[in-house]
Design a protein around this nucleic acid. Structure first.
Lengths: 336, 336
DNA sequence: CTGTTAGCGCCTTCAT
DNA sequence: ATGAAGGCGCTAACAG
């Protein structure tokens, strides 16, 4: 409610002096500083950010665009992002794209008009290129997390899909599995592509002939694994997989649900492994064998890179941070 | 980047005309409207919200303050809040208070200076009264969710702690339990108080003499149930509880973890029930018996009430929406 | 060390 | 139906 003018009048100084006190800028005598500060206190003055943004052309607001706040993976990303943002004096605008390019586009427009200083985004897919170009055109710095986008060179924080896939598959192979199915996300998402590539490569290296019919792509949102799973288990025994590698936590859960409906037991009949924990708290349901990614750090470091870029402290070349996964072996993949 | 002036010049009209086109206000001839719209398209014009906020004194930004985005309960709240906000043309600023009054205060100051139009808050506790009064002083409308605050009369969306507690306890009693412990949140939180009150009342109504030593309050964040749980199970058998009512999902999980460490089986040795699902996806780990609250709706309706208040369509008297829980009986409380 | 001037982009008000 | 003037609250640039 109160403005610097109100303060200025009451303190018998110019608005500029008040501004300097508020921002700790320029030189101010101890005496006037105290006088002004007292009145600021008295009048409960809080700076008006809209006005400040207008002149400074920066809002101290960052945007976090993720695909599903309901997924514990992104929940932890959000946590990390928020902690770092707060620490650096920024606030965070939350957007859920639901893996939809259209929703993402709407949000991007909203964000630009909101005047956010930067965007931390888990892109919905390769079409996101268009949205990112919109950001570039509007000179809004951004950092990508979890997924990169074809044709866009930028700072990013990602996991290591190859290593995670390798560890997961080697574990399964070590358990004696050779017919391993893959239930993957859509191929317009970089992580899905990389996991698929790694899957075929690692099987090959292990001397296992991959059966393309054992690999499928489904949507992260619809999560319609049922049909494919049913196909899998109705294969003749010589072809039927004994293990399933699900690309992410939600696909894994959905797959297990499908298996249960079909009266197939995990892990007795089929082992299941995936990326990322489906539980907000590890260790409570120690069931799924996973390649756990450091989600909190995706958010934390993502914001860090973003702020470096915004404040111009970032190196000229783009930074690519790759965070390794940690395999956690639990009962969903263990022989009794 | 482009402003209404750029558009105006190119279209040979005044900035005012452009403004009217953008906002669909006033009367504009079809011809000029089309001309202006074409140029807006061409120049990729997006309105500057800072400037708009400055004159209009509204930012179309709402703030969501919750205590832990990592908890699936609040995750769903956030989802609901965000969906409704987007639908109404607002954006959402996310804040995690971590159940800390201090953090909440910092955020409240940030929010005020950000010029948010309203706040949807799950207060950290009764001390939040101070923060809410700050909001009132700054004329920022707010709605409380999940918890109310002593001495503050405002719109709110809450669960029904009494009914949830009743259903949970009656279920336990029906299972033959009479020594039922309570592991509750801190008493400066309204839901904890209400659950405690309900707990004693319902036991009394059931003719069970409550033992005050079986009830404890712990922090939602530290979640340090271990010591109390250890005490409980080392009680002589005549006093030892056969069931535990945990106030929320995270307390329940932590309690079960403690029990496991102590080699106590759930539900064989002790049954456990609580409010709210600890899993983001129901049905996947159908283990805990819960009083499930409609979290999504807490967020959705909360934002709805908030916007009604902001836009002045709300009724003069404050609205109190009470959303009933639904009991879901699962194995954590079932006799084999 | 402190003050003055001007302008950020938009909209309200008043004029035409 | 359209335009001109002025101001929202703040700060950069310059002046003293």
């Amino acid at each position: 409610m109160a403005t610097i003018y109100d303060i200025a009048k009451k303190a018998n100084v110019s608005p500029m002096t008040v501004s300097r006190v508020v921002n700790n800028s320029g030189k101010i005598s101890e005496k006037t500083r105290e006088k002004v500060e007292k009145i600021i206190e008295e009048l409960n003055y809080i700076p008006n950010n809209a006005a400040r943004s207008l002149t400074l052309k920066q809002s101290k607001i960052l945007s976090l665009v993720i695909t599903d706040i309901t997924n514990p993976f992104y929940t932890k990303v959000a946590r990390g992002a928020e902690d770092k943002a707060k620490q650096m004096g920024y606030r965070l605008l939350l957007s859920n794209s639901d893996e939809s390019f259209e929703k993402e586009s709407e949000y991007v427009d909203m964000l630009i008009s909101s005047g956010v200083d930067g965007v931390l985004m888990a892109p919905s897919g390769d079409e996101s290129q268009k949205n990112l170009k919109t950001l570039i055109k509007n000179r809004i710095p951004f950092v990508l997390i979890d997924r990169h986008v074809k044709g866009i060179d930028c700072d990013l924080v990602m996991g290591d899909s190859y290593q995670g896939t390798r560890q997961l598959l080697e574990h399964l192979i070590g358990q004696g599995h050779s017919k391993i199915a893959l239930i993957n996300g859509p191929t317009n998402v970089s992580t899905a592509r990389e996991r698929e590539k790694a899957y075929f490569e690692i099987l090959r290296l292990a001397g296992i002939e991959a059966d393309k019919k054992l690999a499928a792509n489904i949507s992260y949102m619809q999560n319609d694994s049922y049909k494919f799973v049913k196909n899998l288990i109705s294969l003749p025994e010589s072809k039927r997989p004994t293990a399933i590698f699900a690309a992410n936590n939600f696909i894994a859960i959905n797959t297990i649900k499908s298996l249960r409906q079909l009266n197939v037991r995990v892990p007795e009949d089929i082992a299941v492994v995936c990326f990322d924990d489906p539980d907000p708290i590890p260790d409570f349901n120690p069931f799924l064998t996973i390649a756990a990614q450091p989600a909190y750090n995706f958010g934390y470091m993502g914001i860090q890179l973003l702020i470096e870029r915004i404040e111009g402290n970032g190196p000229a070349e783009k930074q690519k941070v790759i965070l390794p996964p940690e395999i956690i072996i639990r009962s969903s993949s263990l022989k009794k």
